[in-house]
Structure formats: structure tokens, C-alpha cells
Amino acid sequence: MKFAIIGASFAKAAYLPALRHVPGAEVVALASNRLASARAAADEFGIADAYADWREMLARHRPDAVLIATPTNTHAEMTLAALDHGAHVLCEKPTAMDAGEAEAMLDKAEALGRLHMIDHELRFNPNRMRIAEMIASGDLGEIRHVNISNIGASWADPASRPIGDWWSLIDQGGGRLGANGSHQVDMLRWWLGPVVSVIGEAITMVPDRIDKRTGQRWTATADDVSYLTLRMQSGARAQVFMSGVAAHNIGNVTQVFGSKGTVLLSNEDERLYFAKAGQEFSDITVEDPNSSLPGLNKGVWNSSVVSALREFAVAISQGRSLKQGANFFDGLANQLVLDAVRESTATRAWVDLPTERCKR
């Protein structure tokens, strides 16, 4: 199966090491905005062709699948072009700049009969899969509320981000809401079902930035703090708080509270704890067999990408839809939530979701 990749940075960190563990996968070409970056990644992983222009790459090759890991404002254009060139598409999160773009991606993929996937790789993490199973089986009883916090210091120093950093620019789709919030929303939808209403805020706490290399001052426009409350169709409430500008790294903590029990998960040590009502917590951690694969970078994200790409490749080879993972339907539903948070930021009010757009 022939793969082409757009975006060298994440490809080098995650896709290319993972694809070495996907039977039959061959990466035939890689494109990046900077040819030097594309060539360096291609040389390291034995890829023959590298391009500075992704359009030229698609014109010269006929890959079975295209993996897209680029700034958010490029996702829709690249996805639509790859689909038109006959490829199945895995696109990074957040899906797109807004729900209109996400819907166009979904409509074209469905019309052309292409497999479509959003890289919410945590759906393949064994501990989060265990939580999904416990919720579905009723081990936790009725889920009443979920609390997720993701607190870090990586953006706290005004000189921590270089000038032009797309993650810090709203017009390129940057910000914590898209970078991390999209993962949290996908996980909550996976575990609990549809979101019906949202209130929240996506704000820039440290807009005044300085480029560490040049000393040039510049302004960040994307959110470095985001928080949201979700009202789920099930009646459960979920709260998510994310910050990149804290003085300390606290990490990602997930707490699920049901009528019969509670589960706790921290990515600091990736240990999963469960307690039935009235009892003490016990460790029920599920180890990830992918974590010991050679050549992978450390962390649950990188090991989970292996399973995501395996499912993507097998589904293509078998001519079936995904059995596991997030597709463009999920991407659209996720984007509606992110859009609602931005609307709520402006209106300071609850926003009801048009869930009928995802029921197709």
C-alpha cells in the first residue's frame, strides 16, 4: 500500500516511525513547505521523493492514501485535492477551520467512496479503551460528570514561541482549543455520545510575544487558555480546562464520575485507577504493547498512532469502513463543538449544537 505524506515535522516524529510497523506500508513521497525539511525526513526514512509543493507531489504520484499533518488552515484544501486524486485520507486534528470546511471534506469523501479518518489516536490507547468499555458495560453506573484538565508551561514564557509560530495564530488555526481541546471533545463523544450544548471561552492570556532568536516583538492571536462545559445528550456534564501558560507542568488528568464508581487517569505516569462506590482505588492499568516497538518516540501519542495507522491500512485493503477510530463524521461533530466554544466566547452564553448535521 502506497502512502504519501504532507507535513514533515509530525511525519518524522510519529507517522514514519509508526508506518515501519504497518505491514505492507510503503511511503513513496513526502512534501513539506520547506524542501530541506522534506528531504531530511525522506532521507532518514528511505523515501525516494521529497517535494516543497504538495500539489506537485499529488500530480506525480498516485498514492493509495495521503496523510496530512499541516497547519489547520490547509486541511480542507489538501484533503479535497487528495480525494480528487483518488486517495483515501487521514487528516490531523483539528479537522478544519470551521464546520463548513469539515462538512465539505466529509461530503466529498463520502461522494467518492474514500475512506476518511481524523487522527484522534487516543481512541487506540488501551487505558482509554478500557474506560470506554467500563462505561459501555455499566461498571461505572450512570455517568454523571467528567473532569479533564490539561495544564502546561510550554507557552508561559513570552519568548517560548518563535515569531510566525502557526500554533499561536488564529488565522492559521492555532490555539489550545484545537491542539488539545479537539482530542478531549473526541474522547468525550466516544465515551458518552453526542454533545447537545456548550459554554466556554478561548482566550489569549499572553498575547505580547518576543522572538528569542531575533528579539523582535510580535502578537499571538490564538488561545493559550481554553475551558468549556459540555451538556451531553445522556444528561452527563463534562468540564475541560486547558492552559499552556501556567508556571508549572501539571499534565493531563482525566476523572470520570459515575453512580457506581470512579476512574482516574493521569498521563504523568499513565496509570489507570478504579474504585467502586465506598471502596478504595485499585490500579487497573492496561499496558500498551506498542510502547515497546523499536524506533518509536516515547509517549502514548506515538504508540497509539501505530494502531490508528494499522486500522486505517487494513480498512483500505479490505474495502471496509473503520471499525475503530474517528472518521470525518466525528470530525464534523467535533468541529461544531469547537465552533460553539468560539461563539460562546463572543456571546458569553450557552450554544446549542445543530446535531442533525452529523446524522447522515
Rank of each mutant, 00 (worst) to 15 (best):
M1V: 10
I5H: 00
A11T: 04
L16W: 00
R20L: 07
P23V: 10
A29V: 03
N33A: 13
A38S: 08
A40I: 06
A42L: 04
F45I: 03
I47D: 00
A48D: 14
D49R: 02
A50S: 07
R60N: 14
P63W: 05
A69M: 09
P71D: 07
H75R: 07
T79N: 06
H85G: 08
H88F: 11
H88Y: 14
A96H: 02
D98A: 12
A104H: 09
A104L: 13
M105A: 09
L106P: 04
K108I: 10
E110G: 13
A111I: 15
L112G: 12
N125T: 12
M129F: 14
I131P: 01
M134I: 11
S137A: 14
D139N: 09
L140E: 00
L140K: 00
I148H: 01
A156Q: 05
S168E: 10
S168D: 11
L169R: 06
R176C: 02
Q184H: 15
D186A: 10
M187A: 07
W190S: 00
W191S: 01
V195M: 05
S197Q: 11
I199D: 00
T204E: 10
D208L: 13
I210V: 14
R213Y: 15
S226Q: 06
G235Q: 08
A236G: 02
R237M: 15
Q239T: 13
T262G: 03
D269L: 12
R271L: 15
L272F: 08
E280N: 12
D283I: 11
T285M: 15
P289C: 09
G295M: 09
L296Y: 06
S317N: 13
R320G: 09
L322T: 03
F328V: 01
F329E: 10
L336Y: 04
L338S: 02
E343Y: 10
T345C: 06
A346V: 11
T347R: 12
A349W: 09
V351M: 02
